[in-house]
Nucleic acid binder design. Structure first.
Lengths: 209, 209
DNA sequence: GGAAAGATAGTGACTAATTACTATCTCTAG
DNA sequence: CTAGAGATAGTAATTAGTCACTATCTTTCC
């Protein structure tokens, strides 16, 4: 129906809008430099009003991280679901992750920005949990792939998982730097192809040792 | 000469000390949160004195980026020098880069932190130039490797270079997150092995299957 | 050789702007 | 009518940058 241009949003809704505003801002602004005033302005509110819905700034960041974690994991899970081969599933995850990031460039910036901080904030804990969950999921896939003969037994799980995540992070970083998210989408398939060949390729015969 | 415990350093020296202080601080502090007061304190100086040697904060960052760029490129060049095979050279560069970062954890933080900013500061331009130079060097190596038959002609140069840098950035990111730089050194060889197989590996023979 | 003069480096106290956060009043929707 | 949502106008803390002054080195010239 007609959006009644209502000024006063219910608290719950207002919190959602706030989170989206932050993600929006993070697309172009260094997360550490995002002020409560900037957030409020971006959603056409006064700065003080923000604190009716969040006890402090940290709570805002926490809400944002939760949003990112939920959306990203759901996207990735959906992409990998129903895939027969674990290698195909990994490829789907890779692409889904890239797509998500290119739709929400602010998301990785928040993640990285928060994780760099020295002190352990609640938001940081959320980010950590996200990464851990991600790594576990990868490990399962790799193991399944091994048992199906899609990946060689000798493959170093740890290195493979590290490289998977690292590759994505590297792509993100470079897009962040160039400021062009489209570039990432284009580079992704070629990059994953190399990665896939790297883990699947036959390992040189191990003699003796 | 006996180090005369002199308090007043010559301007040039003082600038160097400042840069080192910043790199030092960046190892444990989010670069955006490094204040001029913190820098001054870390080098046992008053805050005001800093501005006798730098016109403003931006100039400090610029000096730091120059330091990082020079040291890193020199290390990498030295490592690759005298290498017969380009693939070996790439491996040496990879390891040298990792070693440099693990010795100066503050360096990548400064780089990434600066590059994330929206506005184009002089420091950011320096960082950009560094990355560009790096990519060019990689491209040359890849081309040479191709002409020597060490890499397949069909390999996508762009993707290979992107993945090389991306892999390093990813490793750095994960070490930054875990706070353990040693981890990166340990993971590096295995990760590079996968990368190398990925670019060099013959595209799987399509025999029957 | 050594004081006087000039140059260089550092101090400590200040400022103007910006920050997260709060107290109080006003409006709006149900 | 009233409770929740927003506006207005604060506060204390922190920030980069300035300034008048002092301490320490270096050069000059008798």
């Amino acid at each position: 129906m007609e959006k009644t241009r209502q000024k006063n949003l219910p608290a719950n809704e207002r919190r959602n809008v706030t989170v989206e505003a932050v993600i929006d801002l993070a697309a172009t602004t260094n997360p550490g430099d995002i002020t409560t005033a900037a957030i409020a302005k971006h959603m056409k509110l006064t700065q003080g009003a923000l604190f009716r819905h969040f006890p402090n700034k940290e709570a805002i960041w926490q809400a944002v991280m939760k949003w990112v974690a939920e959306r990203l994991m759901s996207r990735i899970k959906k992409a990998a679901d129903g895939m027969e081969s674990p290698l195909e599933a990994m490829q789907a995850m890779f692409m889904a992750h890239i797509a998500f990031v290119s739709e929400h460039p602010g998301a990785p910036r928040m993640l990285f920005g928060e994780l760099q901080g020295a002190k352990a904030t609640p938001a940081k804990r959320l980010a950590h949990a996200l990464l851990k969950q991600y790594a576990e999921r990868l490990n399962e896939l790799i193991e399944t792939a091994k048992s199906r003969g899609e990946l060689p037994r000798e493959l170093d799980n740890q290195a493979a998982a590290t490289l998977f995540i690292g590759t994505i992070q590297g792509l993100i970083m470079q897009s962040l730097i160039s400021g062009d998210m489209e570039q990432m989408r284009q580079a992704a398939p070629g990059v994953f192809a190399i990665y896939r060949r790297g883990i699947a390729g036959t390992v040189p015969e191990k003699r003796g040792e």
